[in-house]
Amino acid sequence: MYNLKGKVALVTGAAGAAGLGRAIALRLAKEGADLVVNDLHEDEGGRSGLAQLVRDIESQGGPALAVYADVSKADQVERMVEEALERFGRIDILVNNAGAPAGADRVPVVELEEAAFDLVLAVNLKGTFLCCRAVARHMLQRGGDGTIINISSTSGKHGVARFAAYCASKFAVRGFTQSLARELAPHQITVYAICPGLIASERIDDMATVLAPPGVAAADHREHMIAAAIQNSAMGRMTEQHDIANVAAFLASDQSDFMTGASLTVDGGIHME
């Protein structure tokens, strides 16, 4: 166990029933942290939602607060941080997990519409920036000390066809992470990125729908994507939510401090850095 007792964590994009944000929130709670969990709005697209996550965290014995906000809107982010501070008095750990759903952006660049590109960058990059800025200001104001974890992707280290907007946003998150790590290090605030491989969450269903070649059913393409990910991985399985949540717990502890600025690849050995 990494002891996070007395710490308050804010995890964005945590409403997915099989999502990464949910797994990270539950893991940090299990390690002792109090949780603030965020998503855009309740029960979006049949997700189990934040209310369920709050109940699940509470049934593990820890307090939790749900705050709905669009991370790409500065005023909503500021309100979210205020609500978190009203309830818990401080934030020690920020996990920027919210990402734009896979959609019209998963096309060749020559066909990529501005609006689709902008949406991905708005959530993945600007959302990360706004949450980092708001929480870093709070951390500095209370005298420093804290951890920020940004969820990038293995596609934040290696470009993939039909993922230009996504890859650009996830590379950008790593660049942002490194700059911020250097700025905040003097204040004992560490900043990391995690680069997960393909996870069997709701996201992969969206991706399969968008990426299935003509004449191939989404479900079949989903199976194909999963089989390819398994075949490419040294560990012979897909990335699971708890794999990432475990690494987030380590990074949230003080035992990773000297690794600040790092982008940790957690993909079972597909991409090795």
Partner: peptide
């Protein structure tokens, strides 16, 4: 530890935030 059971083939830099890769 079990926390790192899905990390393999990686080279973790532990240098206080110098080279960052």
């Amino acid at each position: 530890s079990d926390y790192a059971s899905y990390i393999t083939g990686q080279s973790l830099v532990v240098d206080g935030g110098h080279i960052m890769d």
